[in-house]
Simulated scan of single mutants.
Amino acid sequence: MKLTKLFSVFCAGVLLASSACAFDRNALVLMTDFGTSDGAVSAMRGVAYGVDRGLYVSDLTHDIPDYDIWLGAYRLYQTANYWPVGTVFVNVVDPGVGTSRKSVVLKTAAGRYFVGPDNGLFTLIAERDGVAELREIDEKVNRLAGSAESYTFHGRDVYAYVGARLASGAITFEQVGPVLPSASVVRIPYQKAVREGGVIKGIVPVLDVKYGNVWTNIPKALFEELQIGVHDKVRVRFLHKGRKVAEVVAPFEHTFGGVAKGKPLVYLNSLLEVAVAISQGNFAGQYKIGSGVDWEVEVTKAAGK
């Protein structure tokens, strides 16, 4: 009986120690444009587990369209702050892999880490969250052993390896490599949301691809300056490279159920930014709306209820 109790206490101690070790690690989150039809993502995961089998590795998405750096930047903006401070994001949308573009780790003011190519992927994170420090990865010491002659898979050979070492505590941020000027982060230029009299201008940064809802970068606070209440009519114009593509007048509603099925509405999305949808329909598909820095939007208050 005494041996049984001792064994139980020993096992409980081992479990508690294992749990404590797990909490000492930070999550590792992967985002790529690789898709999952081949072994690329699995190879990155394998490298991470080779560093530390106890790591928690998750996926943001691997369905970024090929080479779409802007969309990668937006998906980070959309999701990063819902992960705990200390989380390490490994990001690979890298059409310039193997060229002179820098490989970096960006630490935000809050203390999250972003590993990847300095090619614009960190545009929105740097803008919203601030850059506490930026370091260039020293590949002489921070690269998967035996990968020196591989030039086209930095996601596996450099970023997953460095990200896993950071998340596991095998290296400190200071051991990543030399400090770079914080202001040197490469940024993609785009139209910030601004109000000019009774018109708010912005862009369509992304589509809610599953349902065809059209998101804008116009925040709630700026939209409220137009003094638009629930059920008030809103006029929204969509332009592509300066040419008008579509225009719609629709009520501002809190929920999709605020209008009948098949009718358009303006609402605040989950990031509290202005969006346009068709209730149980596909607005982007019906009105032929795309997304990106060259898709502009203009929002005004329309007459009537």
Rank of each mutant, 00 (worst) to 15 (best):
G198Y: 04
G292M: 09
Y74R: 12
V29G: 01
I218R: 12
K2N: 02
E174D: 15
V209A: 13
V115M: 13
K107V: 00
L265C: 14
R165C: 00
F114H: 03
K102Q: 07
N91D: 14
A275N: 08
A43F: 05
V93D: 03
D294A: 14
L268K: 06
V276Y: 08
G116M: 08
V93G: 07
V259L: 10
V158D: 08
A183N: 05
Q286S: 11
S58I: 03
L268E: 06
V299E: 12
S184H: 01
F283T: 06
L268S: 01
M1P: 00
Q280S: 14
K263A: 15
V179C: 02
V274R: 06
T32E: 03
V248Q: 08
I203C: 02
E296C: 00
D129L: 09
G163C: 00
R112G: 10
V51R: 07
Q280G: 08
G120E: 11
I69Y: 08
W83Y: 15
A183V: 00
T87Q: 01
L226W: 04
Q280E: 15
R135N: 01
L55E: 01
D208G: 11
Q78E: 05
V85A: 14
E253Q: 13
T123F: 02
K261S: 11
V185E: 07
V88H: 09
P117M: 07
C11D: 07
S8F: 05
A17D: 06
G285S: 05
E174C: 05
S270H: 03
A145G: 01
S8N: 01
G262Q: 06
D94M: 09
V199P: 04
A22E: 12
V179R: 10
V204T: 04
V274G: 06
I278P: 13
L239H: 05
F238C: 13
D33Y: 13
I218E: 09
A132K: 08
V9I: 14
L271M: 13
G198E: 03
S19W: 07
G72F: 05
P65T: 00
T4C: 07
P95C: 09
N282H: 13
A48V: 06
G72Y: 04
S8Q: 05
D208C: 10
I200W: 08
V199D: 07
T216A: 05
A20V: 15
V131S: 06
K201G: 05
V14R: 09
F23D: 11
F223K: 05
G120P: 11
I69S: 07
I137H: 02
Q191L: 04
S168Q: 00
G98C: 10
E224W: 04
R128G: 03
F89A: 00
N91S: 15
D33H: 12
Q286F: 08
L106Q: 05
P205N: 04
A110P: 10
G292E: 06
T172N: 01
H240V: 01
T255H: 12
